[in-house]
Amino acid sequence: MKRVIFWVGVAVLLFVFIFPIAWIFVTSFKGPADIMVPTRLFFKPTLANYIYEFYNMPILRELLNTFIVTVFSTFLVMVVSLPAAYSFARFNTGYGHLLFFTLTTRMFPPAVAAIPFFIFFKNLGLLDTHIGLILLYLYFNMSFATFLLYGFFKEIPEELEHAAMVDGFGRLTILRKIVFPLIMPGAVITTVFCLIFAWNEFFFGYMFTRTVARTVSFGLISHWGSVVVQWGPMAVGVIFTILPTLVAGWFMQRFIVRGLTFGAVKG
């Protein structure tokens, strides 16, 4: 009996979390005649939306742009955040104030921050370039990544490093031999989170790009016209926006159970 209740619980949980996403998938196969009518469970599936999306919309280009920007910005985030988080966690640099300040950069409304950035980027010629967007996503993800990594570094026992230092190892050797292997799971999780957040970011992508560096989130809303909403092609777009993050998410969950313990308790 208890088992039955458990599985019913799991089923409800999965239904709530998965159904809306699954239904997007179903919608993407609906022809225009089936989209705007009271929902029918059975309908004639069509690939028309997929064909439309790939022939008429620059979705492949947008996916490529988003990919470039996401990967490079995440790489830079890690380059910036890993040493910083290590410094905060190990040496308590700035006594927490600096870490808190880093955290607050995300408290600023993006709509307001966007305007000075826009003027700044215009003068530097960075509008509608991949580099510009990479820099913005670096700003966007940096605080979160630093904070998360701070937690992971805290988890690594300081005693290990002290012992190594007493044995005469240099800083870099300690980092390479001791710290780096231990931070790996945490760094992977942070990376995946940054990838997902950058991939899904909309506002900066819309503000700072036009045709060259346009990202996929921006492309998605292009289906919402003033007279027609193209639900079908939009569903296709959504599917292709989600797929990469699904893969990333799947990859992450293997690490997340192992790694996300923030150093507070050690099992």
């Binding site: 826009f118 819309y206 346009r214 919402w224 016209g225």
Partner: peptide
């Protein structure tokens, strides 16, 4: 061509 949603067109073109 830069295709965009009508709802965001004003803000984008304006700036």
């Amino acid at each position: 061509t830069d295709v965009m949603l009508f709802a965001v067109m004003y803000g984008k073109e304006n700036i």
